[in-house]
Amino acid sequence: MLKRVFREFIKGLWEEIPPFRLVLGLCPTLAVTKRVEDAIGMGLAVIFVLTCSNVIVSSVRNFIPKQVRIACFIVVIATFVTIVELVMQAFTYHIYQALGIFIPLIVVNCILLGRAEAFASKNGIIYSFADGLGIGIGYTLSLTALAAIREIFGYGTFFNIPVFGPSFKPFSFMVKAPGAFVCLGLMLCIMNMFKK
C-alpha cells in the first residue's frame, strides 16, 4: 500500500507533470509566470486547493448522485478557492494583487476538475491525497521553471534580486504575452524530446 501511495505521489512530478505531460491548466501557466514569486504563490494555492478538494471528493464519492457529481465537485473546489482567496488577502496582500483574477479562476483550472473526475472520484482517500499533492507540486515546479526563465531574461532578476550587471538590457519580449506563448511552446518541445 505504501508503495502505491508513493507511486501516485511521484507520478505527478515527472510522468504526468502538468502542464507538459498532462496538457491542462495553461491559462495560469501563461499568466502568472512573469516573476518567480508570483508563480510560487500560485503553485502553493493550487497545491492547497487540489489536495483538499481531492480528499473531500474522495471521501464523499459514494454519497454523490452520479448526475450532479460535476456540480458538487465544482462547489467543493470553489469553496477551497474562496478560502485561499480570503487567506491570501489577509496575509500576503501583494501576491494577492499580483495574481489578481487568476486566484478565483483556479475554480475553472481544468487540472482540478480533471483530477476530481478522473482520480479522486474513483480512488481512496489516501491515494487521492498523494495524487493531489504530487500533481500540485509538479505543477508548481513547472510554473517556477517557466517563471525563472522569463524573469531572468525579461527583467534580469531572480526572486527580485538582480542577476546580471547594471549594463544588462532586459529582453522585455519574455515578460509580455507573446513571450509567454513562445516560451511555453519551446519548453513543451524540450519535454517532448525526453519522451520516447
Partner: peptide, 22 residues
Amino acid sequence: PKPLQDTSIGLVTAGMFSLAFF
C-alpha cells in the same frame, strides 16, 4: 519537427499571433 508537433507548435504560433495583436 517531431518534438514540436501539435500543442508545442500551436503555442509558438499563438505567440507570433499575440505579437501581431501587440
